[in-house]
Design a protein around this nucleic acid. Sequence first.
RNA 1: GGCGACGUGGCCAAGUGGUAAGGCAGUGGACUGCAAAUCCACCAUUCACCAGUUCGACUCUGGUCGUCGCCUCCA
Length: 475
Amino acid sequence: MLSLYNTMTRKKQEFTPIAPPFVGLYICGPTVYSHSHLGHAKSYVSFDVLVRYLRYLDYKVRYVQNITDVGHLTDDADSGEDKLQKQAKLEQLEPMEIAEKYAASFFSDMDTLGNQRPDISPRASGHVPEQIELIKTLLEKGYAYQVGGNIYFDVSSFPEYGQLSGRTGDDQKSGMRISVASDKRDPRDFALWKDSGEDHILKWNSPWGWGYPGWHLECSAMAMRYLGETIDIHGGGLDNVFPHHECEIAQSKGATGKDFVRFWIHNNMVTVDGRKMGKSLGNFTLLKDLFERWDPMVVRLYILRSHYRSPLDFSDDGLAGAKSALERLITFRSRLGDPDNGIASQAVLELVSSTEAQFRKSMDDDLNTPGALAAIFEFVRAGNIILEGNPSTADKSEMIALLDNLVKGALGIELSTESGGGSSEELCNILGELRGYLRKNKLFQEADKLRDDLAEAGFSVRDLPGGFSEVTPDL
RNA sequence: GGCGACGUGGCCAAGUGGUAAGGCAGUGGACUGCAAAUCCACCAUUCACCAGUUCGACUCUGGUCGUCGCCUCCA
């Protein structure tokens, strides 16, 4: 039975959906005004594994993840510049060109990491009517008030505010940097709709004049549109708990009178030298840059080697460790060869089923991927021992199926052996044969020169029994 | 200042009230022409520190120190 840590209750709870086998899942997506960084990778890999594991458990998941393409402000809630508009000015493009460009970049990076696409990727800009409707309802019910062209949510009207984060918003004393907007009744109140003013490019017409929706509103509107008024799971980064998710709850429950979310799931942050990696700190590593130095699956494994609720401190040593670990998995997979039919031996069937049980036990415990990986590595050791004894192809196929199911299926780690494509594979075979020939004729100096040269070019050589050498490209 | 999380071997990282998974790195051995891969063995009497509860705590309670996050857009 899967249990998940619910931020709302601050404990692990058995997960059951409202209407099994269907699960509605909403994850806060990125604001698309720059390329994605490692922080995004950790977040979306974590949630991808949640989706994959739910599907592995045979749930029918609808995975919704928004794209925020309505500019929100660079500063606090009431001043500063629209981020998309700012970037548009910089790149001399339309704001929507910025959104399009970086949304495409985001999807491409996520694909590279092996994340499954969300079932729906709704854009905030495409759901302004829904947001306006939500505001109308909140105004009617007395949860919101209008000041000129601005609409604010009246936090004092919603006593549950603060339940999720344990923060009411009025405990802000010294040390905080908020500058209170003059037209709010209460500093805790937050914008539902903002008057666009003169220089705001992204704007829509509304009953309150030209303007644009508040940041928190889009998630409420889109989540409810596609998943209903009460959704099973809502996730996002830990840094979104307050104020973003707190405000979402207030808006949504205020409007519908129903509980908005049953399970709140939050993943922890990526740090660099112990400091949070963030756009505003300028210490982020772009995924596109990272992928030039590290295989995307190395990055994925690196992320999954720590728990999603723990911070991940980014380091090259860590990546190097993950790379070695991944190579161990890939080597094992390639030793298994191609799958075939047949009945596996009792010993292998037992190994496979105990591995799967161990794997599930860890994953059921709030997606404990480090524990699940430990089960896999124990399996790899046992499997390597079995391979020494020349097992049947049926045995090997059984082990392949397990890897496909757990490592590839549930964790999304691709253990592909061919990365170069057909022609380079053929070339590798020819070079492997050449080294085999040289060794057979005891021309060791020449054979080793070939091996050294290949190593320099990024290929590993392994001598196999039978006089043939295997040449494979490094990760 | 308020709220919250965390502190496990050289590095990373799980974990249970009954005496510490796994990965990386390292050491020794088997295998190899030499390697690589693989296997075997070794690698935390100890889980920040100090009290307390308990027959027994790394795991529960209290305190101390340290690190980090949120309180402003951020995954």
